[in-house]
Structure formats: structure tokens, C-alpha cells
Amino acid sequence: MKLERFVAVLVARNREFIRDRSALTWNIMFPVMIVFGFSFAFSGQPLDKYKISIYSNQPDVEASSFGFSRLKYTKFIMADNVDKAILKVKRHQLDMFVDVVSRKYWINDSSPNGYVLERVMGSFDDFDFDKATVSGREIRYVEWLMPGVLAMNMMFSALFGVGYVIVRYRKSSVLKRLKATPVSAFEFLSAQIVSRLWLIMLVTIFVYFGTDVFVDFSMNGNYFDLFVVFMLGAFCLISLGLMVAARITSEEMANGLLNMISWPMMFLSGVWFSLEGTHPLMQQLSLVFPLTHICESVRAIMIDGVGLMDVSDHLLILVFMSIIFLGLGSYFFRWDD
């Protein structure tokens, strides 16, 4: 690889992105509009009236096997981790948590829903548990949404900004012209990745702090950890874009394929709503999407304040996916049609 050639392609791509005012504006304005729109639409009220999580060490136990689950207008979810469930009660993401093993239940002492639920649940015979309280500020929907929107914007920018652009280059013979020079496929693809990576990071940082000024969301983790997750996530999504664009010569085909990938990811990766309580198959399916792992890692850092080691399983999956996407993308890449 010759640095001079790599930098020349990188500069050309950066210039193209920055000078395309409409695309640049859209990249910045789109996530801001989404955050404002949803924070306005869902301000105050949570999505479910009441939400109770139950923990049992018995396998295959369902919430419906408990008598108190007959309570109407309440969503019952089985928990797989006591500490995480208690943290959610602290954050007001759950109104109550019931641990049938230790015979205890938790409510947040500042949660009106928790107070009401405690009174109502007492009327059920099988609700015979000891009370425990936790304290913690409520996580507003916008704070929960923000990581998802940042990740989603990253996804669109990576897939369309790399995948679609390469197909356009191929169709208009820009790639053919480059093929006739000493520029190697590795130099070209590296320049595309680096160019999009720093542009995505720049836009993400700008949108993050710009939105924070108006929405004032909480950040309980470390900024360096968040930066690492965003970098890795963006790299993985760019690699996916490269893989899609490896051989396609039609912009229409590329558009269709990129939409076919991005739309299910947008709705099934937990960008808008938590996947908790959804069908287990849906939850399993969501794990094949890189966006799910980005959303979960970013939320864990921003909301729960955890470190990189705590989200290492997600990060390893993202690294693995990046290697696969990049390997296939490079192997199948061709300059011309």
C-alpha cells in the first residue's frame, strides 16, 4: 500500500461528501429531527401502563403461571438477571421487579406506578413477598431513544454513503478509470472506509452534543468507551456496505438491497422500542443485526454507566461481523461491470 495514493483517494472522497451540501445537511438534520419528534411525541408517558418483571430459577416458567399475572393493563416479563432488573427499577424502566426465589419485590420509592402496583398486587393471594425499595432518577424515553437514533443514523450513513456510492462509481466508470492507474483495490477500499469512518464520527459527535444542548440527556458512562463502541459499530456497518456493493452494477439494485437490509435492522434492532417482552424468536433474530449490538452497547454505557468489559460480548460480535463482511467484500470486489 502506498500512502500517497491512499491519501489522494481519501481526500477526493472527503471533498465530495463535504461539498455535497444537501447530503451533509441531511446527515446532520435527520437524527436531530427524529430525536426532537419522538421526544415530543412520547414526552412524559411510558409506552405501557405498568411493567412488571419476574425472576425465577425454574426453567421454562412463564409469567402466566403466577396468579398475580392476571392483573389487567400490565405487561409481565420474565427476567434473566436480578441485578439488571433491579437497575431497571431504579431507572423507572420497570415499575416493579418480583424475585420469586428470594421472595422479594422491588419498587422505586419515587415511582407513582410502583406505589399503585404495590397496593393492587397485595390483593392477590399468591403475592406474598417482602418489600424492597430502590431510588433512582427516571430514564426518559428520549434518553433511551438517543443511542438508537445515533446508531441508526450511523447505519444509513455507512450503508448508503459507502455501498451506494461505490455502485454509483462503478456504474459511471469512475472505478474503471481508477483501475487503469496503479491504485490497488486495497488502497481504494481503505480510503473509502477511513473517509466514511471519520465523517460518521464527526457527524455523530456533532449530533450528540448538539442534541444534548436542547434535550439534556444523561451520560452515565465514559466518553472514551462510547467513542470506541461508535467506532467499532461504524466500522462494522461500513464493512457491510462494502460487502453489498462488491459486485452490484445497478444503482436501483443497490438501493433495493440496502433498503432490504436497513429497514429490518431499523425496526428489529431495538432502535425505537425495547425488544424485552417480544417473542423469543424475534429477540434471537435481532442478534444477527450489527445495529442491535451497537444499540445495546451504547445504551449500556450511556444509561447504565458500564465499561467496555461489560459490553465485550457485543463488541466481539461486532469485530467478528466486521471481519466477515470485509473479507467477503474484498474477495468479491470488482472495479468494473
Binding site: 500517497e4 495514493r5 477526493a12 471533498r15 459511471s172 466508470s173
Partner: peptide, 19 residues
């Protein structure tokens, strides 16, 4: 053939010169 969008004549020459 085509060149990258938003690229001036001079910039195109400089880019290819670096190759």
C-alpha cells in the same frame, strides 16, 4: 468515463498525479 463528483479540473489532475 467519469470522475468523482464536486471535483475541479485542477483537483482531478492533482489526484491522478499522486497515483
Amino acid at each position: 468515463t467519469a470522475l468523482q463528483d464536486f471535483m475541479t479540473t485542477r483537483e482531478a489532475l492533482v489526484m491522478f498525479q499522486h497515483f
